[in-house]
């Protein structure tokens, strides 16, 4: 139902953004913070990462065990459903391919779960083949709590609410279920290139 807004011309467009900026997004240089409640602060001695649910032998790593896993440097554009995008964000973390290695499951979906009770649902195949990480460094520094530290999920090809902050594990599920924002009307999948912001998009 788009119609031309009287008097609106918009700012000058940067051709370098073309093809790299999903529809309806704009570029920021800062790193905005969005969370629904207080920021949890989890001691590293109490932190662990688990894979559970539809799996015969659940997996679990302590912080030290997690740090000993092969790590990767990741540079990706990120896109928040609140319209901002940020190019070339730099992270360090563990690939989900490493964490899911050897996991034999009939599950097709996961529910990521976090300290503070946050959850978000993602198809399992979106976490495989070099598309997702658990990141614990940002710009060469330990990830700050307000941005999801000690560790957050990083699934940059989906809107950023899918990159769960303060992530503590994945629950493997046979069927798709809505997570926190998905229950409040946000899209079950969240592809920024198809502008899947809200349910029905």
């Amino acid at each position: 139902m788009a119609f031309v807004t009287r008097g609106f011309h918009g700012r000058q467009r940067d051709s370098a953004e073309a093809g790299r900026l999903p529809p309806g997004q704009y570029i920021v240089s800062g790193f905005p913070v969005l969370s629904a409640g207080p920021t949890p602060h989890t001691a590293l001695s109490k932190w662990s990462f688990s894979i559970e649910g539809e799996i015969d032998t659940p997996k679990r790593w302590t912080w030290d065990e997690f740090q000993a896993l092969p790590k990767e440097n990741i540079t990706k554009d990120i896109h928040c459903v609140t319209k901002w995008s940020k190019f070339d964000t730099m992270w360090e973390g563990v690939s989900l391919d490493t964490l899911l290695d050897g996991v034999d499951t009939a599950a097709e979906y996961v529910m990521a779960f976090s300290d503070g009770g946050y959850t978000t649902n993602i198809p399992l195949e979106d976490l495989r083949d070099g598309k997702a990480w658990v990141a614990y460094q940002y710009n060469g520094e330990p990830l700050e709590a307000e941005h999801g530290g000690p560790a957050r999920l990083l699934v940059p090809h989906l809107y950023f609410w899918k990159s769960a902050k303060w992530v503590r594990g994945l629950r493997l599920m046979m069927d798709d279920e809505p997570g926190f924002w998905e229950m409040y009307g946000y899209h079950m999948y969240g592809d920024p290139w198809r502008e899947q912001r809200y349910s029905g998009d």
Binding site: P32, S35, G117
Partner: peptide
């Protein structure tokens, strides 16, 4: 939270400097 309020009773919305 330090004053003892339950995190689930504290709902937040942040207005970041998002250039908008």
């Amino acid at each position: 939270v330090q004053l003892g309020h339950a995190p689930q009773h504290i709902k937040t919305e942040r207005f970041g400097p998002t250039g908008g």
